[in-house]
Design a protein around this nucleic acid. Structure first.
Lengths: 228, 228
DNA sequence: TCGGGGGTCGAACGACCGTTTGACTGAGCA
DNA sequence: TGCTCAGTCAAACGGTCGTTCGACCCCCGA
């Protein structure tokens, strides 16, 4: 048939060859994906029309519905892939830290595994810089269905919560959970607009380009908050 | 004339009698205001149509454009009033703390002035509960014009930055600014959805109803982070 | 060489949106 | 009593949106 997103879509790449399939044939799909991610991150989901996306990508208007089923489907697929990548990188760092320290990594290393991946992506020289902004935006502007997934799927946070509970055995579990919540709030606030706002407030003292310095600042703050 | 938002609107209440004018005559305006704030807070700006608002308020469709000029104008007016109230309450608390301590309030009292107002509003028994959610949402989903104001107007944060710089003289100013940024991130993350998410993760251990306990938790965390 | 189907294209559909219009209402005042 | 005008109302306008349709192209296997 023609439209892969109608009735049991034949030969669905199914999340695995997505990265490879951008060879030549489905270049259109990759271009739509990239353009949509960029525009969604910069202007928000509702403020970007399908026509904006296809114009930016230089493809036909019908491409979005052909390759992704719908505009919602496009948003969801970008979100699923990016959060998957981010969570995998975080889990890998946490796992490596656990290997280094016999299964019970110290507090700072747990927090580093939580903070570093999105910050490394946010480096101005990193092409994934826009992906972080997309994720942050999508978290609050996403579809209702997306927010349902977001609310119920906390599996990737389980490892971090457990590691923190182990690292701070003297702390009441609810305190650990709340402080993890605070740390997540710290990262979710790292949007372009907030950086600019801080830049204005500090009269140019703060710079949003040095992500390594920002990482250490966040670690200092959060680690002290957890030890309290 | 008929439409107050066309050409130099006659007898504009001008931000002062807004609270009083809800006597009888302009009950429609107040109902639109309340319905819009609630719907915007719950579903977002773009997901709520003017028809949704007027239906919820039980008034005519044209009321929004008559009383507020446009849908954007309505959003902006709600945002301006609510943020004004919040900033005034924060400034008042900071001022009182300064009076108590001879002009240089201790770190924890500064942070309390920053955290407490929105948390007190968030109390389930407080009718302003929805206003906090509205503010947080509007901060990231607002109009471009609104975001421009948001980025350039940092006057209400100046007092807090200065107070923090005074309270932590040994700290590099840029560290103070960054840590203030972290604290703001902590408050901005206090959305309903995030509370539910944490509730799921902690398997019911955390409760979003006890705002006083949450305030102390946030103060413990942030104060320790600032002392580090 | 021929047929089929994945992919692309222009064009249009139908729904919903924010906004505007002009008539109407009723209270306040001379 | 008659005029004025802020406010309300039903109805419609013009535009944009996501989506769908049917024709078309071209590569690939038989």
């Amino acid at each position: 048939m023609e439209h892969p997103h109608r009735k049991l879509r034949p030969r669905e790449p199914s999340d695995l060859e997505d990265e490879v399939e951008a060879t030549r044939e489905a270049a259109t799909k990759a271009q739509v994906f990239a353009a949509a991610e960029r525009l969604f991150a910069l202007h928000g989901f509702q403020n970007v029309s399908v026509r904006d996306i296809t114009a930016e990508a230089g493809v036909n208007l019908a491409s979005v519905n052909y390759h992704f089923g719908s505009k919602d489907g496009l948003l969801f697929e970008i979100f699923r892939r990016r959060t998957g990548e981010l969570n995998r990188e975080r889990a890998r760092m946490l796992h490596e830290a656990a290997d280094r320290d016999g299964g019970a990594p110290p507090l700072r290393e747990i927090l580093r595994a939580l903070f570093e991946p999105p910050l490394r992506w946010s480096d101005p020289r990193n092409e994934r810089r826009i992906s972080v902004q997309f994720i942050i935006r999508a978290r609050s502007e996403g579809t209702e269905a997306m927010r349902e997934v977001l609310r119920s799927d906390v599996s990737h946070l389980r490892r971090f919560a457990d590691a923190l509970l182990t690292a701070r055995p003297g702390l009441a579990p609810e305190d650990v959970y709340w402080r993890l919540h605070f740390c997540l709030g710290m990262t979710h606030n790292n949007r372009f607009a907030e950086f600019e706002r801080l830049h204005v407030l500090s009269q140019g003292l703060t710079s949003e380009t040095d992500m390594e310095a920002l990482l250490e600042r966040m670690l200092d703050f959060a680690e002290a908050g957890f030890v309290a």
